[in-house]
Design a protein around this nucleic acid. Structure first.
Lengths: 346, 346
DNA sequence: CTGAAAGCGCTTACAG
DNA sequence: CTGAAAGCGCTTACAG
């Protein structure tokens, strides 16, 4: 049996100082002689001492925790972000606590408050991280702010305040991938929108329009359908697009799931991708390289998004100055097989 | 500003009892008169009192936390399980703490101990939940046991002790889906194995063999390839299988990712699925219904797996008796489009 | 069946 | 620059 874990008292005894000095060293406070500091550090090392987060939180009423609040899972998306959050937490000695608020739309304000009020039982968290759709939920944001919990939102959203936001430039990314389609020789390009109330839909559509404008291609609204960000939506929109008298040469679906639907629609109709139809998506989700053909799409740095949000939140809780609330991270065009390339001319 | 959260003291005052009585009611201890119990409960309700997990843990040295320790993400799989864990935690007033141990193979025993020793900073957790591949890591299991942390493992694994295990009957599920292929008129059925050192591979292969045996179909080892549970592996194995002089009529890939690879191999060769080749997978992962054609596969009740593991862990930590350490949950054959059905005879 | 006292392991003022 | 005392909000023995 392992004997009971060492306490701060034990470290103090071994180092020959008071526990207060140990506490100071551990919290990187100033006003400790280098010599004592070193002694304490060796004692910590020797005993394998790990501070009790509970005792610490209880006294200081800070959680040394980051809360990640998720909706029903957006699967790969949420998961990759979570990996980044965990990484940043571990780097900084924080614990990650994950909770879930399902169908927040159907909860009363009181229920939301109740849900969130259980959150600080381990001390007031140093921050809460929200992703869509919760990041867009007015009541969740307000309740957290009222509780004094700093928020970091990941991804596109519609709320305008001084909380931290980390995201990619969706509009620019959408413009780029549309431009790629144009550069590959396409002019009749369909677009499938996502959920109508989401900023991601608006931004990606704006990027699509921008690229057309840049190349002086007239926007043809009959080539634009809505697909709700879901496979089924993409499938149906794809079928309509392909049934047109003059179908598009390429389709830009506002996310990968819908792009998968377009691919299915094409296969069902015996239309070959990419030789007869080019398709691109957005997200580079788990399915993107497992389709046939593999999907050209936009990759968001999901892990880095989570990591950055967490680091900013921690920095802010430590009252470091000069933290910009808005941060854009670079995206990347991932070229695979789903776009037809112009015949090579030697 | 919200005034500071109510304490047990406040509840006691409002209910007109000692704080000890409040504590007893909150912890469902016996020996409290119904009348007082009700008074306390109303007071808790009225004040919206939520106990401080920190204070509680500090005194009792229990965490009221469940730790979910994950490897690099197995994406949808881990995510769905996590949703179940969160649900059970919330139902029982526990918090979920997630940590990650990457490439445990390359860590020294000491590093693993160090990683895990940070785990009980919020009080000794009531349990740790492990999924493959960490659930198979001898050193992680041993270290947790030495720390006195009960373990629940989800999914197939190779360790034999009295810790909790929740899983489906992989062998039986594999037998069923193979039988489904046979019932659909196939006799030449290829099999693609997963990672060779994993129990899942062994069990699923055993189920495949059993079904063949049951139908007196001779096992043809030339129809069995290895694919490492990955898309690429499935693609390559699929190509080899389809290049055979006498290719199989159907392929059972030991997971969906590999099945996606087989579909791609078929498409690339212009072989139509399911009319010329039937394909089935295992997992019903996120991609299964986004392929073309959609994939017939086995669904594990992932959310329930996580939920059950957590509930058992909590029950065990409360020393409830009669908890069976091994629990099998029902799987389900999900029939979609990737298997050819015999021509209907009127 | 109920309660007053002690204490979990830290950090927060406060002194020196 | 360092330390002795008090206290965070609960639960654990212990009494009655």
């Amino acid at each position: 049996m392992p004997q009971s874990a060492p306490k701060m008292k034990d470290v103090a005894k071994l180092a020959g100082v008071s526990i207060k000095t140990v506490s100071r060293v551990l919290n990187n406070e100033p006003h400790v002689k280098e010599e004592l500091r070193d002694k304490v550090k060796s004692a910590v090392e020797e005993l394998g001492y790990v501070p009790s987060a509970n005792a610490r939180s209880l006294r200081s009423n800070r959680g040394y925790t980051i809360h990640f609040i998720i909706h029903n899972n957006r699967s790969n998306y949420v998961n990759a972000i979570q990996a980044g959050i965990i990484k940043a937490c571990q780097d900084n000695g924080y614990q990650l606590i994950v909770s879930m608020i399902m169908d927040s739309q159907n909860l009363s304000k009181k229920q939301i408050e109740e849900k969130l009020s259980r959150l600080p039982t381990l001390g007031v968290p140093d921050g809460a991280i929200l992703v869509s759709p919760l990041s867009n939920d007015e009541r969740i944001n307000t309740t957290l702010k009222d509780m004094g919990v700093p928020i970091a939102r990941i991804g596109p959203n519609d709320i305008d305040d001084d909380q931290i936001e980390v995201k990619i430039n969706e509009r620019e990314a959408a413009r780029e991938i549309t431009q790629y389609l144009i550069d590959s020789g396409h002019t009749r390009i369909g677009f499938i929108r996502g959920k109508e109330d989401q900023n991601a839909t608006i931004e990606r559509y704006a990027g699509y329009k921008q690229a057309l404008l840049d190349s002086r291609i007239l926007l043809d609204e009959s080539l634009v359908y809505s697909g709700n960000f879901e496979f089924e939506g993409g499938l149906k929109a794809g079928e309509k697009l392909l049934d047109m008298e003059k179908p598009p040469q390429a389709v830009f679906a506002a996310n990968d799931d819908m792009a998968a639907g377009v691919l299915s629609a094409a296969h069902r109709k015996g239309i070959s991708v990419p030789s007869e139809l080019s398709v691109v998506g957005f997200d580079d989700s788990e399915i993107a390289d497992k389709m046939w053909p593999t999907l050209t799409t936009i990759r968001q740095p999901l892990l880095e998004l989570g990591e950055t949000a967490t680091n900013l939140l921690i920095a802010r809780s430590q009252k470091l100055s000069g933290i910009e609330p808005q941060k854009y991270l670079p995206h990347k065009l991932v070229v695979r097989e789903s776009v037809k390339q112009p015949a090579h001319i030697d």
